[in-house]
Design a protein around this nucleic acid. Sequence first.
DNA 1: GGAACACACGGCGACTACAG
DNA 2: CTGTAGTCGCCGTGTGTTCC
Length: 186
Amino acid sequence: MRRGDFSEWAVFIAVAEEGSFTRAAAKLGLSQSALSYAVRMLEQRIGVRLISRTTRSLSLTEAGERLLISLRPAFDHIDSEIAALTALRDKPAGTIRITTFRHAAQTVLWPVLSKLLQNYPDITVEVHVDEGLTDIVAERFDAGIRMGEQVQKDMVAVRISPDVRMAVVGSPAYFANRPARRHPAT
DNA sequence: GGAACACACGGCGACTACAG
DNA sequence: CTGTAGTCGCCGTGTGTTCC
């Protein structure tokens, strides 16, 4: 997956939430044509129509609705974590190690990391993709994404999607210095 | 005179071509 | 990949016509 993909997901969310390319463009500080191009490229690459357009209005397709429901909490969660990091440090920097499975990496993690890395270039993120059950604590990962049934008892889990059973999990050590969350912040 | 309908037109928003 | 300019087409509104 190319790095440029990240912004396309953010564009999709903005358009979906605003219900208008023009308003989304104003919100993101881009031109309307840039957003149209980004969404078109995104749809072409994944081969799924996400937004139904007419000359005067737009609406989300079923696939678009599902994608928005899945992505929005993840973006919100990353935003809240960034805010928490900012509160702890004047200038966030360092390495975050995350383990996840391929589907979550493609649909959830990459889009939010795009925003994170743009805003905090001093942060390095190590993403380990594997379909097995990597031990987050033993392998010294800071966080991971697991299906609900894969969340172990000693993990601190935050659900990130209402319709997909995915959750962000972190080692107790990671959350020891941070406030525990039951839900992603909005 | 007032209500209902049909039509024309301008505004607005999305798309596309093209240049940088 | 982004911005500009031009094009297309839907929608809202104003105006004219018809009917009661």
